[in-house]
């Protein structure tokens, strides 16, 4: 038998082969910060249940420079994740009206609109206005 197919195994180098893979990894990486923020919220709830003193100390920790840095990063990644995700929504949720598909901008725009509305609702509930 003369055949001897050669398989070049994929290595982690693929991440650097094209900027699209780095962008993708950045999107995936964002989950660490979003997950971390979720844990922080759970911890906050726990502290709240332990009484006013615990809650106050939790709020103090939140004001530390490390915490602020973490929040800025988490917000950045959350925005990056949301923007890239919304950009992909027209692929996942195409809407056909009559013969034509709605333009991508309308689908992702609708997501932005809902996002804005929800954020506003949360802010109102939180008594920001």
């Amino acid at each position: 038998m003369s055949r001897k197919p050669y398989l070049r195994e994929e290595t982690m180098r693929w991440v650097f082969r094209h900027p699209r893979y780095l962008r993708y990894m950045a999107r995936e990486f964002s989950c660490l910060f979003i997950g971390g923020y979720g844990l922080l919220m759970v911890w906050g709830l726990k502290r709240l249940s332990e009484g006013p003193a615990a809650w106050r100390s939790f709020l103090e920790v939140l004001q530390s420079p490390a915490s602020i840095a973490f929040h800025v990063l988490a917000l950045g990644f959350a925005l990056y994740h949301s923007v890239t995700w919304f950009k992909l929504t027209p692929k996942a949720l195409p809407v056909q009206v009559g013969g034509e598909f709605l333009p991508d901008g309308i689908i992702s725009g609708a997501h932005y609109a809902v996002w804005a509305a929800l954020s506003l609702a949360v802010l109102i509930l939180a008594g920001a206005f």
Binding site: H18, R20, Y24, L88, K91, A92, L93, P94
Partner: peptide, 19 residues
Amino acid sequence: GACSEVCPEHVDPAAALQQ
């Protein structure tokens, strides 16, 4: 999403998979 970026026919496989 790389599949859709390289597709020469703009089939958009990534869209198909998400759907």
